[in-house]
Design a protein around this nucleic acid. Structure first.
Length: 706
RNA sequence: UGGCCCAUGGUGUAAUUGGCAACACUCCGGUUUUUGGUACCGUCAUUCAAGGUUCGAGUCCUUGUGGGCCAACCA
């Protein structure tokens, strides 16, 4: 079999190098170390798939280790949920372990450090300690207790352990270097007093070890060969190694920490803290709300474990910050469900169709394929009768050629059934269509093989027989946020980007009767609509479906295009040119080049009308667009002082621009405010904040000018 | 006394370690289709910049530029 060569990610390359350098393959061992203080999310899935994937490829054990060193935040509930999610994802850990298993060993090693003069007890306030620690740019200074005697340290540490001190009063610190350029090396805390009951060790301990003191030593105890964590732990590596140096026995394997970039998803947030906020403030209905990026949320939404593993695999792993398009995740679930989900018919927005030439009281059970992608899935029977529901959107009294659906005088195929023709409509007093009267062609029955059945008509519609259909509730989910990266805007709360339409409940949907037997969690494709699964809330008398993801909808695109043929407004050539120049500006790192680009844009600005620009400003959606419009605004060819309506419009735009990540954009926004004092009062707060906190010196300089 | 990390299409990752910039998603266009689904085909980057080393640079060196992380008794 021709082995396809797969490129290795940088971590696999490191492992390969280690093996080449003499590391015994059998000593390879990994771990997944969650803190049980929240639910796992799709970002964790990346780490899980990475570690367990490595375990699989190298046939190495992978431990599940709960990093439970902070009883204030950790709970058994989370431990159970994490284990459940991991199992659901399809992974098997070698051993279930807890950092708390090592509390005694860690304590003993701490005594060793004290005896070696490498650790001391400090009893200053946290404020005093913070001050002595310095800042990233200023070195720290030694505290007054740094040179306590070993005996005194031993005695105090013993008292800490015995609960003789209050929380916050005493800590044990490593004695390293208060002048280190790495803040973490400035005598980091190893133990703090915490009189909390721990979910596993109860009240045995009055002191608890900190992450840094715990993690590397735990890896060492478990003989983890490669301890993989996310990028923000990079500065911890020096400390990780320092702690290991203190207790390392050269006959044993020495673990190695390496860092990779955490996986972010567009249109959502990924930090546990923010997800907790959504739950606690009732913005979502719990950790497993189908809109949440948690594993439990995705599960309830109808995602398959395979689709999540696939997503992690194709998204890959690297060291740069990223925001992965949620479309990639959606592709993975659609791809999986397309192969496995049985097709059924459901009408979400019903309108009644009467087949006038179909005998009253008659019914037929027609053959319907369960899944055209899977021969083995077989077929089922669906009932047909004189009165049916179809989707309201599938009928128009009149429509152009592009509308492949039912229109008066037009023909359409009912999926798995007959060709029908719309003859007339009946409406209520409001003009709402209540009934569509159609005739059917008896010889056109699907699969009958007759000439009429082989006739091709342009459209095929799904439908349900009214007397046989089951009523159901369908929950339609949309993205939780309107913004690609809701937590990336300086000074704006991520919750300001909540999509108020992220959940629409439809309690008037009808599904074919075969769904009577469906169980919670079962997944289906509602033909022509999307993938749906049965929600946990579903009962025999009240079927509840979640929309996992919609099918690709080419018709929606066509319709949008015909409605407003030039939906991206700036199709005129001047604007495209300006946008190109702005794009080059963003890429350019040459002052001169940027100046000439600005000059070009200034020239072009004479060809842009104020009205166009004001329209565009509202649609700005990327660095390039923001920059382009700002440069136009700053060209001096437009004035904005007079009309208050205009001021308002531009205000919003400038407000956003001031908070953009790209400093060119922010600079131009500041420049605009500088040139147009009218706007200044609107942003006094933001500008003051920027003057203090913005990292870009050009912006600070510009701000000083006014 | 600041340190460290990162930079390849709209997005996410590759590039046999110095040798024709590849794969997937998205977008756009098309073919097939009893799902406007699926499948299939096609278009879209001179790799942040400048300079250097080299027959040859995304890859090495220098200098810039931009982004990120670090000042919790959190992990």
């Amino acid at each position: 079999m021709p082995e396809e060569k797969k490129s290795l990610n940088f971590l696999e390359q490191i492992i390969e190098q280690d093996i080449a350098a003499g590391l015994d393959k059998n000593k390879l061992r990994f771990r997944f170390p969650p803190e049980p203080n929240g639910y796992l999310h799709i970002g964790h899935a990346a780490s899980i798939c990475l570690n367990f994937g490595l375990g699989l490829t190298y046939n190495a054990p992978v431990n599940l280790r709960f990093d439970d060193t902070n009883p204030a935040k950790e709970e058994q509930e989370y431990v159970d949920a994490i284990k459940h999610d991991l199992q659901w994802l399809g992974f098997k850990w070698a051993e279930e372990l807890y950092s708390s298993d090592y509390f005694q060993q860690l304590y003993d090693w701490a005594i060793v450090l004290i005896k070696k003069g490498k650790a001391y007890v400090d009893n200053q306030t946290s404020e005093e300690i913070a001050t002595q620690k310095g800042t990233p740019t200023e070195t720290g200074v030694n505290g007054p207790y740094r040179d306590r005697s070993v005996e005194e340290n031993l005695a105090l540490f013993e008292k800490m352990k015995n609960g003789e001190f209050d929380e916050g009063s005493y800590i044990l610190r490593a004695k390293i270097d208060m002048a280190s350029p790495n803040m973490l090396m400035r005598d980091p805390i190893m133990y703090r007093v915490l009189k909390k009951s721990h979910h596993r060790t109860g009240t045995t301990w009055n002191i608890y070890p900190m992450y840094d003191w715990t993690h590397g030593e735990s890896d060492y105890i478990e003989q983890i060969s490669h301890s993989l964590c996310t990028l923000e732990f990079k500065p911890h590596r020096e400390l990780y190694d320092w702690f290991l140096d203190q207790i390392y026995d050269t006959s044993k394997l020495r673990p190695k920490q390496r860092e990779f970039a955490r996986r972010n998803l567009s249109y959502t947030v990924m930090s546990k803290r923010k997800l907790l906020q959504l739950v606690e403030e009732g913005i979502v209905n719990g950790w497993d709300d189908p809109r949440m990026p948690t594993i439990s949320g995705l599960r309830r939404r109808g995602y398959t474990p395979r689709s999540i593993r696939k997503f992690s695999e194709i998204a890959g792993i690297a060291k740069r910050d990223n925001v992965t398009d949620v479309a990639l995740l959606e592709f993975c679930i659609k791809d999986d469900l397309n192969k496995i989900a049985p097709r059924v018919m459901a009408v979400l927005n019903p309108v009644k169709v009467i087949i006038t030439n179909y005998p009253e009281g008659q019914e037929e059970w027609l053959d319907a394929e369960n899944n055209p992608e899977d021969e083995a899935s077989g077929s089922r029977k669906v009932p047909f009768s004189r009165e049916l529901y179809i989707e309201k959107e599938d009928f128009r009294e009149e429509a152009n050629k592009k509308f492949f659906r039912l229109k008066l005088g037009g023909e359409v195929r009912l999926k798995n059934a007959y060709i029908i023709k719309a003859e007339s409509v009946f409406k209520d007093a409001d003009g709402e269509i209540t009934e569509i009267h159609c005739t059917y062609e008896a010889a056109s029955k699907s699969g009958s093989g007759t000439e009429a059945s082989l006739r091709r008509v342009k459209g095929t519609l799904h439908w349900v027989s009214i007397q046989h259909a089951l009523k159901a509730e369908v929950r339609m989910y949309d993205r939780l946020f309107n913004d690609e990266a809701p937590d990336s805007h300086k000074g704006i709360d991520f919750k300001d980007f909540i999509n108020s339409d992220s959940l629409t409940i439809n309690s008037n949907a009808f599904v074919e009767p075969s769904l009577k037997e469906a169980k919670i969690g079962d997944r289906f494709q509602f033909q022509r609509l999307g993938y749906f699964n049965i929600d946990d809330d579903s009962t025999a008398s009240n079927l509840v479906f979640n929309r996992t993801v919609a099918l690709r909808d080419s018709w929606a695109k066509i319709e949008k295009k015909t409605n407003n043929p030039k939906s991206p407004p700036p199709t005129d050539t001047t604007m495209t040119e300006v946008l190109n120049l702005a794009g080059r500006y963003l890429k350019s790192r040459e002052e001169n080049e940027r100046l000439s680009l600005v000059a070009n844009i200034n020239d072009l600005s004479t060809k842009v009308t104020k009205q166009t620009l004001l329209g565009l400003v509202e649609t700005a959606n990327s660095n390039k667009e923001y920059l382009a419009y700002l440069l136009l605004l700053n060209s001096g060819n437009f004035s904005f002082d007079t009309d208050t309506a205009i001021v308002k419009n531009v205000n919003v735009f400038i407000g956003n621009a001031l908070q953009m990540k790209n400093s060119y954009v922010r600079f131009q926004a500041v420049d605009f405010v500088g040139k147009n004092p009218t706007y200044r009062k609107e942003y006094t707060d933001v500008l003051a904040l920027m003057a203090r906190e913005d990292k870009n010196t050009h912006i600070i300089e510009r701000l000083k000018e006014f």
